[in-house]
């Protein structure tokens, strides 16, 4: 930039940018002593300083792009993850959103002091403009952290939803080498994925040669559900296990026929008991029924 004298640089934004780049080390050093950085980076002070430098660099980049008011500015991208971690760490420590916000606000003062000290020769108006620009920039930083904190909250909800899915999908060992999953409720794509993964994992764990998918508790079987069942059966087969689908209620069987759904080569049985009987027979295990005085396996 031509004709740019020390202390009286062009626009306030450029001034702030140059200041951030010049005072990077000092700002990071001061931030490292602030509660926010001290509480998050507990391993070493150097770690806090490094993190501080990254934030200063991001702020300088945002100022360079003249987007001090834009929380979506590209400059923030590189530190978004770090800021999210910092915000999350403070939330986990039991701080309210307002408390995190005020810890963030506390980062402004040390920077502002340095900036004012750097502008002894500037006109009052220019100095004020620069301080205002810095305030806006620091405010935007706060917005960025709060945004990521909120999305962290959303991520938490998503994680819990996923955990709920896993809880709702128990895999039961019925016999040596036989596992079963009783499916209850609607099977959407997310749930089917979890069912498939849990079942296949348990096939490996239990070295189960047979897996029974019981759909007695599934209210409807549309083409999507049928497709998921077929995929699970195919994946199990690739691993060396046979999957049996049981519990296809008459009403569902009717709908499936109406819809033209075909489970293809998949072995199906009316009930879980029938499926178990089939598998035991395959394994060569016979059970003697004392009442009927004969084997019930089929």
């Amino acid at each position: 930039m031509p004709e740019q004298a020390e202390g009286t640089a062009g626009s306030p934004t450029n001034e702030v940018r140059d200041f951030l780049r010049r005072r990077r080390e000092q700002i990071a050093q001061r931030w490292a002593d602030e509660p926010l950085f001290r509480a998050v980076f507990t391993v070493s002070r150097d770690e806090a300083v490094e993190a501080g430098k990254a934030v200063v660099d991001a702020l300088a980049q945002v100022a360079d792009a003249a987007r001090v008011e834009d929380p979506d500015a590209a400059g923030f991208t590189s530190v978004r993850e770090q800021l999210a971690r910092m915000g999350a760490a403070r939330s986990r420590a039991g701080l309210s959103t307002a408390q995190v916000s005020s810890e963030l606000a506390a980062l402004r003062q040390p920077v502002e002091n340095l900036l004012v000290a750097d502008l002894p020769d500037a006109s009052a108006e220019h100095a004020r403009d620069c301080v205002t620009t810095l305030s806006v920039l620091m405010g935007t930083l706060r917005v960025v952290v709060m945004q990521t904190a909120l999305s962290e909250g959303q991520a938490l909800i998503d994680r819990q939803r996923l955990q709920l899915l896993e809880v709702a999908t128990p895999v039961i060992k019925l016999w040596d080498g036989i596992v079963a999953v009783p499916l209850i409720g609607t099977l959407d794509s997310a749930r089917s994925q979890v069912v498939m993964e849990t079942l296949l994992e348990s096939i490996v764990e239990q070295q189960a040669r047979y897996a029974i998918l019981d759909i007695t508790g599934v209210p409807t079987v549309d083409s999507l559900v049928a497709q998921h069942l077929m995929k699970t059966v195919a994946a199990a087969r690739l691993m060396g296990a046979e999957c049996i689908v049981s519990g296809i209620r008459p009403a569902i069987a009717q709908t499936m026929v109406h819809l033209g759904l075909d489970l293809g080569t998949v072995v199906t049985r009316a009930s879980l008991a029938d499926a178990l009987g089939y598998v035991l027979h395959q394994l060569g295990v016979g059970i003697v029924n004392p009442v009927a005085n004969g084997p019930v396996t089929r």
Binding site: M196, E197, L200, E201, I203, A235, R237, L238, M239
Partner: peptide, 18 residues
């Protein structure tokens, strides 16, 4: 074919290779 991992099996099915 022995010991295919679950993740590999799921991917192959998704890929259309059974």
């Amino acid at each position: 074919l022995v010991g295919m991992r679950p993740a590999v099996a799921i991917t192959l099915v998704e890929l259309g290779l059974t």
